[in-house]
Design a protein around this nucleic acid. Sequence first.
DNA 1: TGTTTTGCGGATATTCTATATCCTTAATTC
DNA 2: GAATTAAGGATATAGAATATCCGCAAAACA
Lengths: 162, 162
Amino acid sequence: MILKSQVEWALHCCAILAGLPEGRYLSTKALAELHGLPKEYLSKALQSLSQASLVDTTLGPSGGYRLARSASEINFLDIVEAVEGKARSFTCTNIRENNPCRPAGYCDSKPCAVARIMWEADEAWRDTLRRVRLSDLVGILSEEVRPDLWQSTFEWVLKRAG
Amino acid sequence: MILKSQVEWALHCCAILAGLPEGRYLSTKALAELHGLPKEYLSKALQSLSQASLVDTTLGPSGGYRLARSASEINFLDIVEAVEGKARSFTCTNIRENNPCRPAGYCDSKPCAVARIMWEADEAWRDTLRRVRLSDLVGILSEEVRPDLWQSTFEWVLKRAG
DNA sequence: TGTTTTGCGGATATTCTATATCCTTAATTC
DNA sequence: GAATTAAGGATATAGAATATCCGCAAAACA
């Protein structure tokens, strides 16, 4: 059970976009360079964010991405699901139906108990991610990252933001 | 992020083993037939349970598997991790280190904040699974499964248990 | 007007994992 | 000695993750 690396990329990119001044855009090229990622492939992750309406885009030189709403209105689950999909990690194939002792026409009243428990854990995972806002991440980073690096990074970003 | 189907198989098999009388064993063949699963491949899942010391095995005719300890001393996480592995679902590749603004020799004081949050969600998932005992599953099933099917299934099992 | 830059989607290639089967070996039962 | 079992290694297949490339349309700018 392993998340795609694109999830990591998308989260870091959103953190950067959250620091952009109102109305400015940052390109795939800049985001790829900043994080040392393959530009073409990172582009797919950003497209997922766009399809999920988490980011706005604009074309042409000085084009790129910006958050579609404020960082306090975007949570981790939004971003993770945009890239990874909304499917549950546990898939119930109803193997209880293969029980040779089943009477013909036997009908289950509820979803399989095994699946319900696994889905409960899945929900706990989602709840945790839902409770963390993108603005929380930015808050943590602004405290932990050394001020000189924090500042020079945003200077670097602003120089490239259209 | 999708769990292997072997996880589902292992959980259902353990539920059956939990119903075995003290000291008796059930073979891969019987477990595969009961659940309609490929015997050879199911065998790999059962081997994982064995390697994790969740089940005891014995060879020869009338051989097979039984729980290594009581169903109240085995939780869902034990079984899931035995099959799926203990690796976290989120892997941090430390892409922050690729930031071109980083001063040479810059040293991070903590693991990446993004990773810490993702790992927290991972722990919530694990905690939920850790809190559910195999005996809890058996309790739920014994209430939900229609008594005639419940009984005939265990007759079927006992006929094949060595 | 035309050139450059950008996001977007489709097509394709590569690598890795999950799924599945087969075979040999050693232990156990009868 | 014959049958049955778990264990583990080797191998094959399918599908997903990773990655690259191309053409298109929109936007900026000279």
